[in-house]
Nucleic acid binder design. Sequence first.
DNA 1: TACCAGGAGAGCG
DNA 2: CGCTCTCATGGT
Length: 287
Amino acid sequence: MSTVARTRAFPIRDYDLAATLTCGQTFRWHKRDGCWIGVIGTRWVRLQATPGSLVAETAGLNSDWNWLTRYLQLGLDLGAVLRTFPEDEPMRAAVGACRGLRLLRQDPWECLASFILSSTKQIVQIRQIICLLCERYGEVLTVPPARELAYSFPSAARLARLTEAELRSCKTGFRAPYLLTAARRVADGRLDLSRLQSLSVEAARAELTSLPGVGPKIADCVLLFAYGFPSAFPLDVWVTKALQELYFRRRAVPLSHLRRFASVHFGPNAGYAQQYLFHYIRHFRSR
DNA sequence: TACCAGGAGAGCG
DNA sequence: CGCTCTCATGGT
């Protein structure tokens, strides 16, 4: 039965939609009347979490929903992932505090650009910057009647034509030239983001970190959130704090040491474990 | 007001 | 390699 519809319900369990959309892996979702409204690619989407299912509404008709199931990773067996985590007290606490937190599979360009803009910014500020960029340089999207305007994330080609001053007027600060360089490299083909999916995680990381303003942390965010490399382990100030507090008795440990520890301790889905630690330390052990 | 934010790069010893 | 400084700006 290939129904064409504007809405669809997906049976799912252990999916904490709110945590997933607000935990710092994506920046454009907002809550309205108990639902989550956002943009995936060039589609306006409204999501409602109900017990046992997710209900999705779009502006236009869909004959297939693969773009959505892929983004939300609805086919993932979360339990199988959690079973690969180390059986220690910190991981039990982190997972127990937020059962149902998921990793999304995002568009590489939007993810790369977003995290270039993320450095030494709070998540609320990152959201502001990206919102400004989309309103000014994104495309107006079709939305259902009586809904607020929605915009696509601006393409690399669009941003490549901007001046640094125009980018700085979106509050990007010292990150403006970084974003501009990335946009130009992607737009003129020197950097082929779709090719990275076929590379080893090390080779893909090397490609990303060749961009100015993209170091190991931002590269690993893109490797994990856009390409789904399960071993990518973004080590930011929060995860650093979590590791020191939970595994090193609150002692300051060199970053290189933490990287080594993370790569051996958390197993094949270290990136997933990282997201639970990030969420846990930010919401339950702040300061 | 002071501190800090999902960092990275350059300069230094 | 490890440390320090700078970059820009606004939230808390």
